[in-house]
């Protein structure tokens, strides 16, 4: 069991091990849903919720079901089932209460199931051997780190829509070049500060 302060885990999740820019988890939604700030915010909200719930639920299942039954090799399958069920729940809630957000998220909402960020958070928790509170803190902070970067990216992309660039660079390459600059900032600032 790794003894690590909760604050250090929190900062780890948001900045030092930022999911999008440092670990490359969840890039499909990163380039797919960041065309405007509103859908990026909605997507991030859904991901934070699913990530926090998934960290909680998968910790409980791993510790109280799989380990006593000596079936740790089933971890992947049980985690993905838990995540799929949670995403289904979020989808029901969003469709019922915020239909406009449901339409703008489109295919990406059911795809949170196959978003590597969520399963990645769960697996990193398992690998690091975090206890219950640490797992939940890491899940929430990873979600917040995802949100920060999604909002920055969406803001920059929204403003760069009318920038005159060669047509070959418009679209995805442009998004990657913006990500390059954000990533450089994150690597250079947060890797050198020992927290």
């Amino acid at each position: 069991m790794v003894e690590k302060e909760l604050f250090a885990i929190f900062m780890d999740g948001i900045f030092i091990k930022n999911f999008l820019l440092i670990q490359f988890l969840g890039l499909c939604s990163f380039v797919g849903v960041t065309k405007d700030v509103k859908s990026a915010a909605g997507m991030s909200g859904a991901v934070v919720f699913v990530m926090a719930m998934a960290s909680t639920a998968s910790y409980l299942i791993y510790t109280y079901v799989l380990v006593p039954a000596d079936m740790q090799f089933l971890d992947l399958i049980s985690f993905i089932v838990v995540i799929a069920a949670l995403v289904q729940l979020v989808e029901f809630v969003v469709r019922k209460n915020i239909p406009s957000l449901y339409r703008s998220l489109g295919i990406y909402l059911p795809l949170i199931t196959t978003n590597c960020a969520v399963l990645g958070a769960v697996l990193l928790n398992e690998n690091a051997g975090y206890n219950f509170i640490q797992s939940v803190v890491f899940g929430v902070s990873a979600g917040l780190g995802y949100t920060v970067v999604m909002l920055m990216m969406a803001g920059i992309r929204e403003r760069s829509t009318f920038v005159n660039v060669p047509s070959a660079i418009r679209g995805l390459p442009q998004a990657f070049f913006i990500a390059l600059m954000l990533s450089m900032a994150f690597v250079n600032y947060f890797w050198v500060i020992p927290i």
């Binding site: 820019l21 440092i22 490359f24 047509s167 070959a168 660079i169 679209g171 995805l172 390459p173 442009q174 998004a175 990657f176 070049f177 990500a179 390059l180 990533s183 450089m184 994150f186 690597v187």
Partner: peptide
């Protein structure tokens, strides 16, 4: 060293994708 750090990945794939788009056009 930047090339093996995370920014290098974005730079490489962005450039390659731009080249592919240019060829397609």
């Amino acid at each position: 060293t930047t090339m093996i750090l995370p920014p290098g990945a974005f730079l490489t794939i962005g450039s390659l994708m731009a080249i592919v788009n240019y060829q397609k056009e």
